[in-house]
Design a protein around this nucleic acid. Structure first.
Lengths: 246, 246
DNA sequence: CGGAAATTTGAAATCGCTCAATGATAGTGG
DNA sequence: CCACTATCATTGAGCGATTTCAAATTTCCG
């Protein structure tokens, strides 16, 4: 089984040794953060992106009327890519649990476009996946009820955890406070609370402490009403590119 | 002055002749659509992306409870990139005016990662810009009032039109119906109507037919409350890459 | 154990929605 | 060029999902 911090790359590509080596050279240093610590703050100058190696993190964006959580990140996710296009970071990245990240200087990431075209394209595709996610997220916030949004969030996290074998028996170790959920779903924390309790009353979920059990995935999924997405796997137009590794 | 369909690439890079040639070879054919025609439909198999050459388009995403417009596209935008990562398109792309697009087969786009690394990275950066936009959009829909969202939309369109010299005198030729606006802002068209009229009453805008005049950019901008974004320009880590062109 | 963070609940207020009807505009075929 | 039709804009009335405010518990962490 592959390292969880590489699983997203492997979704599109079976990198060869030289490519893996090139990627690992781009990871210059490793940092750890405690829960609630901030990795980068919106407005800061941008010089690196990060690879989430272990733990959960969030990227969010503060406006006058509150904080919007843009995404929940799990091991293997790249952090801070959007801000590469800017002089100052758009996003604040915060540790939701204890977290380990690898620092990838932008220059090193850019270098991959020269030395490892297939990897560069895979990272490009990961960014496109992220955009699809954000589309789904936007549609949920813009067009669906509180109940639907929460079901969508539960399913999203669940499917991602399953992909890295972290959702045994549909039980999720849940580090998000109701305030966090509210910031993601575009709701008030009070309403998140009421809606969660309604999900419990309907026997769709069960909670105890920081743990959530999904009791009826099917019904939750009907509620959420978002389409299942299927990613391309090792498409010929990717795998057929030259490997080049330096 | 450069071709509007290339202006987004030029934001990051001064491509040389060989690079321009490589890019132009990737544009295999040209299509035109009339207002309201659909370019691609969500759920369709994905084989190409598009470069918007002329006109306005939208990408949107339908869920049971309605349509969410994800972005408004202007000349120079790439269309359909997010769906590259999927087997079936996530987005429906529709012409908002008469529209010309160039078809770029995915294979040709992928080829640029081999033959023109600097261009590939520039396109990567354009995608990251798009993600920043979507973040702002999400924050607007999730955390701000109807009035703020509309102000944000007006400013967004205005700034984009200015970038291609299409917003003379702060007057905008506005092809979006109030229903379209509603789908973008996550509101009902009825409420969009009321809010627009309130903006008129407050003398922030003026409308006649399909034309909107922004009367007080400053006040509109205060209302919207979204930060101004500054893109990186020809960063060394990009321009310094090998050009390679085939 | 103590204090901070997070959850829970009620009551009242509100922003935006739905339904429904009317009026204005613009595109199209004859 | 007109008449016809579909689309789009506008307005009122009533309703409802979600918010805000406030306070009481409970849980977590050091």
């Amino acid at each position: 089984m592959i390292d969880a911090s590489l699983h997203r790359l492997h979704e599109f590509l079976q990198p060869d040794d030289a490519e893996l080596e090139a990627f690992s050279l781009a990871r210059k240093s490793r940092l750890t953060f405690r829960r609630r610590q901030v990795v980068t703050t919106q407005g800061d100058p941008v010089s690196s992106v990060y690879l989430l190696v272990d733990g959960w993190a969030q990227s969010s964006f503060d406006v006058a009327s509150g904080r919007q959580m843009v995404d929940v990140h799990l091991p293997g996710d790249f952090l801070g890519l959007p801000s590469m296009s800017l002089t100052r970071a758009a996003e604040t990245i915060t540790a939701l649990t204890a977290v380990t990240v690898d620092v990838i200087p932008i220059k090193a990431l850019a270098g991959l476009f020269d030395t490892a075209p297939r990897l560069a394209l895979a990272i490009f595709l990961i960014s496109q996946q992220e955009r699809v996610r954000q589309m789904d997220h936007l549609a949920a916030v813009g067009r669906t009820s509180a109940m639907q949004r929460l079901c969508g969030l539960l399913l999203y996290i669940h499917s991602r955890l399953k992909a890295i074998n972290h959702a045994v028996d549909d039980v999720i170790d849940w580090p998000l406070s109701q305030e966090h959920i509210a910031q993601g779903a575009g709701l008030s924390s009070v309403h998140v609370n009421r809606t969660l309790r309604e999900l419990e009353r309907g026997r769709l979920i069960e909670r105890e402490g920081k743990r959530i059990r999904l009791l009826d995935l099917e019904r939750i999924s009907d509620f959420a009403g978002l389409p299942a997405r299927t990613s391309v796997r090792e498409p010929g137009w990717l795998t057929g590119l030259p490997r080049r590794a330096a």
